[in-house]
Design a protein around this nucleic acid. Sequence first.
DNA 1: ATATATTAGTTGCATATACATCTAATGATA
DNA 2: TATCATTAGATGTATATGCAACTAATATAT
Lengths: 141, 141
Amino acid sequence: MTAQSKKQALDIAKDCFAVRLRKLNREVSSLYDDQFRPFGLTIAQFNLLVSIAAHGEVAPKRLVETLSLEKSTVSRNIEKMQKNGWVTTVPHEDKRRHLLTLTNAGADLLEEVTPAWEQAQKVAASTYHSLKGMIEDIPLA
Amino acid sequence: MTAQSKKQALDIAKDCFAVRLRKLNREVSSLYDDQFRPFGLTIAQFNLLVSIAAHGEVAPKRLVETLSLEKSTVSRNIEKMQKNGWVTTVPHEDKRRHLLTLTNAGADLLEEVTPAWEQAQKVAASTYHSLKGMIEDIPLA
DNA sequence: ATATATTAGTTGCATATACATCTAATGATA
DNA sequence: TATCATTAGATGTATATGCAACTAATATAT
């Protein structure tokens, strides 16, 4: 490691979008995980929970598209949420497909955790001032 | 799911910092992973590679702090990078500690992948216009 | 100086994520 | 209609991540 290459590496570390974004992502995600932990819920699961609720009924395929998740990731995370009794499936005429809905327990959970979510939002906004302005530039669907 | 609660869920999905940030993180990370794939390198490993290079010699503890990673995550990711021959350890007077440095192969790899990194940066910047202004607000260390 | 507390790092375990491949079902085409 | 292609989702395998508990070493306090 010459002093030259060390300086170059530092520049890369400072300039890299992914390095910065991933660090912020870990920090912010952990705020939400901390808030949700008492409910046995993770931020990843909350994300799916709220997305299903927003749709009412939704195909995994659509979650893949709107959340930029790999289909196998959706498949496995939903599987856990089904085991937890929060999500159930509705058959579809096209037998390859099915729709996901929240169970009553799932809907109740979402209501229960909303204050925790609000708390996480508050901490996130006050810790990372740029977040507020940032999110409008991130396409939702 | 009443129409009321559906609408509330949609609002949460739209307002949630974590939901948006995590989606952006997946999308951006995948740009870098695509670029690095031919080198057998991931964005997570690149992150460590460049951080070690920037320090010259660095303790895992310090990477934990500067990157907001869990110590076990650093431990295991470094382990893989050692197996790949990119990183090696230097003993410390305090026998609990050790320092990490890049091997020649690791330093060479970093040089080799720099054009791929630049390409990912270019795609990221042109796809997500807000990234450029955003990163200055994310503390690096 | 010995007992206790702290620290750095590792290991056990669980979730999250993605790529490749597979299967079942449906669609398109010759 | 029989064959081929596409599609939705599931499964195999690997990396990434974090919490809890552990170990070895050092620091602190009595």
